[in-house]
């Protein structure tokens, strides 16, 4: 089990590096940042480190990747070697390069999708909660109707109608996700809009946009951030499931969700190739949520550990 051992060693190495960096930060930084560095749990430091590495890889992909994203440079499914560190894929493209470019494409698409879903979903949700009345009713019932249609099947319908370019993919997944965000944002905001300070601001004559931006949003941030962490990672899974049903990202763009799908049959024979993109997704999911948990913990003000 050389593969399992090296994965465990890699993870341990990342933890060790995170610990060293945190220790370094504690000794170098001063003031506010120092107190954050003191407070940060090791898991969150690990999460931040992983996110930083992903971001760096995504930005520097062309410099890091040994081969171009789409070029066929070898035979089908070549073994790991000095030339192709992680072997080649189904049509002979370098696996490592595809993974590196995949970071850029996948994370970019997932981020764009989630951000869009959150902007649309939370603004509408907060607005509905703030305004109430028929607007709230219409929006909520409509969102209820959309949510009661299975997400995957609804996406399938929409993508078949509108085509499968990257842009429509982002828009469709964001639209489906936005319904979930709307519901959460509305639920959270309903608890806030009855507060005295909202009443006071309303009496001051502030507009809806101001209220949402300056009064409600800051107080609704924590649960929204937590949701963001999970939704962000679910985008990869949605893309992967869509490619399971024959839709998804267009070739030759490298993306982890489709790469898992493309190589999935190999797992039947215990081959680790499909584990690589799946592992990339899993590591990022865990890392993001470690950081989110830490932020939630800070926001909750619960001081005990």
């Amino acid at each position: 089990m050389g593969f399992a051992t090296s994965v465990l060693l890699g993870l341990a190495g990342l933890f060790a590096l995170a610990w060293v960096l945190r220790a370094g930060a504690r000794s170098i930084l001063t003031g506010q940042s120092r107190s954050i560095a003191n407070d940060i749990p090791l898991t969150a430091a690990f999460g931040l480190l992983v996110i930083a590495i992903y971001a760096a890889v995504a930005i520097a992909a062309p410099a890091l990747a040994p081969f171009p994203e789409r070029e066929i440079v070898g035979g089908q499914f070549q073994a790991w070697s000095a030339e192709h560190l992680l072997g080649t894929d189904r049509i002979g493209r370098d696996m490592l390069s595809r993974l590196i470019y995949g970071a850029r494409n996948t994370v970019g698409i997932a981020f764009a999708t989630t951000a869009l879903a959150f902007v649309v979903g939370s603004i509408l949700g907060l607005w509905a909660a703030l305004t109430g009345g028929w607007l709230d009713q219409v929006l909520s019932r409509f969102v209820d109707a959309l949510m009661s249609i299975p997400a995957l099947i609804f996406s399938l319908l929409l993508l078949t109608i509108f085509g499968t370019s990257v842009l429509t993919l982002i828009l469709v997944i964001a639209a489906v996700d936005a319904t979930r965000v709307f519901r959460l944002a509305r639920a959270v905001a309903q608890g806030i809009v009855v507060m005295d300070y909202i009443e006071a601001a309303k009496l001051r004559g502030e507009g809806a946009w101001f209220l949402i931006r300056r009064e409600i949003l800051p107080n609704a941030m924590a649960p929204l951030v937590a949701e963001f962490g999970l939704r962000f990672c679910f985008v990869f899974l949605t893309i992967s499931s869509l490619s399971f049903l024959g839709l998804g990202i267009k070739p030759p763009t490298a993306d982890w969700g489709s790469m898992v799908r493309d190589n999935a049959t190999l797992i039947t024979f215990g081959d680790v190739t499909p584990l690589l993109p799946a592992g990339c997704i899993a590591l990022l999911t865990v890392a993001v949520n470690f950081v989110v948990d830490w932020q939630l913990h800070r926001a909750s003000g619960l001081k005990e550990s």
């Binding site: 499931s241 039947t268 799946a278 865990v286």
Partner: peptide
């Protein structure tokens, strides 16, 4: 932390992938 990380890892694999791995371990 371990339960959290384990659960997050489990949901970050696509469903069909989890299924294949279970088949590999428990069905084959």
């Amino acid at each position: 932390r371990a339960a959290n990380a384990g659960a997050l890892t489990a949901i970050s694999f696509p469903e069909f992938f989890v299924a294949y791995i279970l088949v590999l371990w428990l069905a084959q």
